[in-house]
């Protein structure tokens, strides 16, 4: 399964090459043009096969990068110091296996065993500069043969199937979105597709800025993942999204207010095709939609997200039904856009 392959590849912000190559190989036979821009965005073009005179140019975007670590020091002892790339809770770092650099050197984020900790140490969250990666090296010299400063480290998690059609793995944010885009590129759709697999979303949605500038599309749809928070302790007020309740539509977040017409078209596409959907009941966070919608003279944009539990951790959970429904909703939306002849104000 492509989603599994993509989720297992390391691709921390700025180091998306392996993800890009895998996607390139997968979509090549189905598309008209393929290029990588200087930031590293993969931009794929596919025109409608059946001769439509003028079809709207639709930008689809999903980011390839994931949160991770970058090596910024090697200690005499051979332990590696690191910085976080993107937003990660320090409490999820401890004792996690990682893979480092292009050679996939295995390592583990070490911490003093519980027996050796003083009582107050047990209560505190460790800071990043108190943590290190152990790669089993005897000393600095040996470590330097395996790892260089600036190498990236990604969580080392294999995808597992779980329970009722659930998957557990790292980086579903946003390889799940990438997999949706790949699937859409394999289908025959009535609009001109400019699919962009963006870079550096996790550190400020940077790839999206240049990609949207290059493409200047008529409209944009961003495929993302968003927090599902349907845990036992959430009472009364509904959580951000629920796993299994279908793709989540964004109304607003920190970077973006959804375009009214796109939102209406998404809703209509879901209802016409009986696709279950939900709203993202949360207005913090940001996606590529912010920068894309403000590119040049402004681009109407919408966001569809796959609910995902435990985002930005080595073990996140999605439900396959949500994933497939997101493909279905995006496809239905593109047909709707074509029927309407675009979404001009």
């Amino acid at each position: 399964m492509l989603l599994k392959t993509l989720a297992e590849l390391p691709g921390v912000s700025g180091d998306e090459k392996r993800v890009r190559e895998a996607i390139k190989k997968e979509v090549q036979p189905y598309v008209d043009e393929l290029k990588t821009d200087c930031m590293g965005n993969l931009i794929v073009n596919k025109r409608p096969r059946k001769g439509k005179k003028r079809s709207p140019k639709v930008m689809l975007a999903a980011h390839m990068d994931e949160v991770g670590l970058i090596i910024n020091g090697i200690e005499k002892s051979g332990h590696l110091r690191f910085l976080k790339v993107g937003d990660i809770d320090n409490r999820v770092l401890i004792s996690k296996p990682v893979i480092i650099g292009v050679e996939n050197i295995p390592g583990v984020i070490g911490v003093k065993a519980v027996h050796l900790q003083k009582p107050d140490e047990r209560k505190k969250t460790l800071k990043t500069n108190q943590l290190y990666i152990d790669i089993g090296a005897k000393g600095k010299e040996e470590a330097e043969k395996m790892v260089s400063l600036g190498d990236y480290a990604a969580f080392d998690t294999k995808v597992k199937e779980m329970g009722e059609r659930c998957l557990c793995g790292k980086a579903f944010d946003n390889r799940a979105g990438c997999a949706v885009l790949v699937e859409l590129l394999k289908r025959e759709l009535p609009v001109e597709l400019c699919a962009v697999f963006t870079v550096q979303e996790e550190i400020g949605s940077r790839g999206a800025i240049t990609a949207a500038y290059t493409l200047d599309p008529d409209l944009a749809l961003i495929i993302e993942t968003t927090s599902a928070a349907d845990f036992p302790e959430t009472k009364g007020i509904k959580p951000v999204t629920n796993l299994g309740d279908g793709p989540a539509l964004t109304l607003m977040d920190q970077s973006f207010i959804s375009d009214g017409k796109i939102l209406a078209a998404l809703r209509a596409a879901a209802e016409d095709n009986e696709i279950k959907y939900q709203y993202r009941r949360f207005t913090s966070g940001a996606t590529d939609a912010g920068n894309i919608s403000l590119s040049k003279e402004g681009i109407p944009a919408g966001v569809v997200s796959i609910p995902c539990r435990y985002l930005h951790s080595p073990a996140s959970v999605i439900k396959l039904d949500d994933f497939y429904a997101t493909i279905g909703l995006s496809e239905a939306f593109l047909h709707k856009v074509s029927e309407m002849g675009g979404l001009n104000r």
Partner: peptide, 16 residues
């Protein structure tokens, strides 16, 4: 539009 959420309308209209 959308000044209160980050000067957004001014950005695209000035570009145009």
């Amino acid at each position: 539009v959308q000044e209160e959420v980050g000067l957004r309308g001014a950005k695209t209209s000035a570009y145009r």
